[in-house]
Structure formats: C-alpha cells, structure tokens
Nucleic acid binder design. Sequence first.
DNA 1: TCGCTTGTTGACCGCTGGTCGACAAGGTAC
DNA 2: GTACCTTGTCGACCAGCGGTCAACAAGCGA
Lengths: 191, 191
Amino acid sequence: MSEPAYTRLDVEERRRRLLELGTTLFARHDYDALSMAAIAREAGISKALLYHYFPSKQAYFMATLEQKAEELASRIAPDPALAPAEQLATSLDAFLGWVEENGDAYAKLVRGAAAVPEVREVMEEVREATAELILAGLPGAPSPPRRTAVRAWLWFMDGAIIDWLEHRDLTRQEVKTLVLRALEGALGEPF
Amino acid sequence: MSEPAYTRLDVEERRRRLLELGTTLFARHDYDALSMAAIAREAGISKALLYHYFPSKQAYFMATLEQKAEELASRIAPDPALAPAEQLATSLDAFLGWVEENGDAYAKLVRGAAAVPEVREVMEEVREATAELILAGLPGAPSPPRRTAVRAWLWFMDGAIIDWLEHRDLTRQEVKTLVLRALEGALGEPF
DNA sequence: TCGCTTGTTGACCGCTGGTCGACAAGGTAC
DNA sequence: GTACCTTGTCGACCAGCGGTCAACAAGCGA
C-alpha cells in the first residue's frame, strides 16, 4: 500500500548526481553561504547521506572543482613542439577562451579564494608551477627579480580577467595583447 | 575578605585594550580560526562584554583594521603639487616602505580577503579609487583597455608584494622598478 | 553606610559542520 | 511467496560558532 520512504540508488549514480548538483550550487552561492543541510535538502536526501558520499564540506567542494580543473588543464596544455614563446601565447589564448565560457565561477574562485584553505593552497601550487614553467622557457638566467616578475604577472592576469568579465568591453585578443605586454614590461625586455 | 569577581575599567580604556589585542590576534591567526570566545578568553573577559563593545565579529575586525588603514593612508597620500608620474612614484615608494614594516598582516589580508565580505568590499573600493586616480593622471584619453590595464596592474602589485615578502630577496628599489615597468608595459607606452 | 550608575557576567538561542546506531529497500535463494 | 541479507539511507545527536539578554555587583558620590 504505502510507498517506500526513499528510493535506493546505485552508488555511482548517486555520487554523480551529487557532484553535478554541487557544481551548480557552488557556482551560484558563496561557499560559506551554502550549508550542507541546504544542499541535502536541495538534493532531496538527508545530510547524513551527503556525508556518506563526501567526508567533509571541503572535500565535497574540492570534488566539484576537480572536474572543471581537469577540463581546463587539458585545454591549455602547451604543445612541447612549439617554441616557449609560442607555447605561452597559445596556452594563454586557450585559457582566455575557457574563461569566456566558465569565467563567472572562476572569478568567484579568485575573489573568494580564502574561504577554503585547501583551495587556496591548490591555487598557489598551480601559480607556483605555472611560474616555473614560464621561467624555464625564458632566455637568460633565472634571478629573483624575474621570479617575482613572473609570479606577479600571474596576479596581473587574474586581475585583468576579473575586470574583463566585469565589464565585458574588451575582445579576447585585446586582453591577450594587454597581458603579454605587461609581461614584457615586467621582464624588462621583449619576450 | 573575598576579592572582587572582576575589575571595572573605564569604557575607553577597555575599548583601547580590546582593539590592541584584536590587532595582535588577527595578525597571528586567520579570521575564521579565531573565535570570539577565544578572544574574550585571551582578554580575560566574558564574550558578552566583547559584544558590548563591538556589535559583531566583522565590526570588531574592521575596527582593528581601520587604525592601520588610517596610518597607511596618511603615509602614501600623494603631494598634489607634483606631476602625476611623480605622485605615483612617490606614493608607490611610501607604500612599499609601509609594506616593509607592516607587510605580513597585509599579505594575510590580500590572500585571505574572502573571509569577511565587508573587508573584500572595502578592498575593492580602494582598488577602484586608486585605479581612477592613476587613470586621471594619465596623458591621453581613457579607454577600456587602459582601465583594465591599470586595475590589473594593481593586482600585479599585490602579487609582487606577496612574493617579495615571502622571499625577501629583492630591495625595495628593485620592487619599485619592477612594478613601474609592468605598468609601462601594460599601458603600451612609457609613463 | 547606603544607594545608584553602569561595567560586567552566565545562561541561553538558532544554526553550523560532522557523527552514529538503527531502519528498511529490494535483489536473491529456496 | 517468504525469509534473508546486503547496504543505501535516515533521525537524532554533539560540540562549537556568532550573537542576545536579564540580572548581578564594583566602586564612586552623598
């Protein structure tokens, strides 16, 4: 007579749905403003079940990010056959293309990086790795001023992207030119 | 016989002490990691009294910032008698000098800006105002690319400062040169 | 010594992230 | 058809958070 109190789902299917829901919700609301209870309610399940699939709120958030991160990484992977300068220009272009599509969530991430310590750490690691990649492709010897220049330039790029997304009154090409010129200026020579 | 359960303090004296303690504690711990209960414990008073002096944790944090902000503002205020380019160079130098002294707290702020929405808003307002000040001093007409360039450059500066403070292997003069060259590059012409 | 002002407190609230033992859905074996 | 067993699922609970409030008491003036 009575309907079942809940419907059982395959583990992977449930997990997939929760990840998808998380991606949507975290893009819409700030991390702090979104409680696990609210997410569970939205998913139509109990909070305990959510914790059964993800050990913590941080881990849940990180898991929703990883999908996007992988997509991004594959899109901007530089072609090692190219010259360093060409690699940089190509990857930068691919990155800006990705930003045009998924930008709002990225902007939220850059602006609100502090909310989740683990996320901040990952972002700093990525910045660090990118900086070293660029430094390695530079002609001439590495030096502290150059290291600082490249790392600061990555901040410049984030700032440019945020302003670009906010106003949307520049073309991708203009942003690319702007960003590359800033790097040349910071390095004190053409790149 | 028995000693008093607590000692009454003048309102301003108590407030002054709490502000001083807050400045110290917030410089040492992250905003989220520092509970009002812990602060009250550290101050040797009840949590309720802390809330008697400051309406909220955010307001308390903002109040501890304001002192430093005022000191900073007065130190980097540009001399209007100077040419715009000189104003920028002088203020930048003063800013870097301030960073050398109070830098660690500033770095924590830039990195962890998201923790307190109100703080993030203020920081964005300051960036906005600074950008407009610089844009107004620029020869030639304003344009979207220039606006983006200046705003992104402010991010560059924060990035350079964080790297500088982290490694401390550049002189203030080197940082200044680096930062100014980045601006020239981003604007596409000497400034 | 009394009284009054007001600085100060302990107890409380709703909500958060997180945990745990117990229930029940639904495929399987007879 | 029913008994069983695996395991997906839930309700109830916890400590800690930011924040509130009525009531106590320190210590000055009369």
